[in-house]
């Protein structure tokens, strides 16, 4: 009798264990996905092939830039978020394709392609020993400005490589719901 009961208990335990393992196993894409390296503004984050240090964030209603001798003004129904950072290759020449602005609820915005091939636009090529200052420019809705995370990896689609994740923190907002420090026009041609 005891033997029979212990067998049933063992079976139940085994089933529960198997079910637990089945439901808690991360998806394959996640297992082989990017490996996060977390940090904050002003910290140097060491990813596998590059290091990154975010200096500041700015918001603007319009962007001004010079592309091939022509002045371009880019407006938006949302906001332009401009992240200034220092990037450096670690042991070998590499590049960073751009970045992702991840809003507080997880919405992801890639670096804007509206800049085209303007000088200083991504992808950023990096050489060891030669850190460079770059700007990541995003076009985001105003409600995505606060508590965002900047995600930066070498390649846009890659597996088992590291991804720098920088918490951009809270942003003071005015009565109109816009960030307090938002400016009218950001000139991308000004030196970083």
């Amino acid at each position: 009798m005891i033997r029979r009961v212990s067998n049933v208990v063992l079976l139940v335990v085994a089933v529960a264990l198997c079910y637990g393992m089945q439901t808690s196993t991360p998806h394959y894409a996640r297992l082989t996905g990017l490996i996060p390296v977390r940090g904050g503004i002003g910290e140097t984050i060491e990813a596998r092939s590059f290091s990154l240090k975010v200096a500041k964030i700015g918001f603007a209603h319009t962007l001004k830039l010079n592309a091939f001798g022509k002045e371009k003004v880019l407006t938006t129904g949302g906001l332009w978020a401009i992240v200034t950072a220092e990037l450096a290759a670690r042991d070998a020449s590499t590049s960073v394709w751009g970045g992702i602005w991840q809003g507080p609820a997880g919405l992801r915005y890639r670096t804007s392609e509206r800049l085209g091939v303007a000088p200083g636009a991504p992808p950023f090529s990096l050489e060891p020993g030669l850190p460079r200052k770059v700007r990541f420019v995003f076009e985001i809705p105003a409600d995505q400005a606060a508590n965002a995370t900047l995600l930066v990896a070498s390649a846009r689609f890659s597996a088992l490589d590291s991804e720098a994740q920088i918490k951009l923190g809270t942003v003071e907002t005015g009565a109109d719901g816009l960030p307090a420090g938002v400016i009218e026009t950001f000139d991308l041609d000004q030196p970083i």
Partner: peptide, 16 residues
């Protein structure tokens, strides 16, 4: 084609 230095760093050709 690449360059290496004494500390093992590597540089590949640049477009800059």
């Amino acid at each position: 084609v690449f360059l290496t230095d004494a500390s093992g760093r590597q540089w590949t050709p640049t477009a800059t």
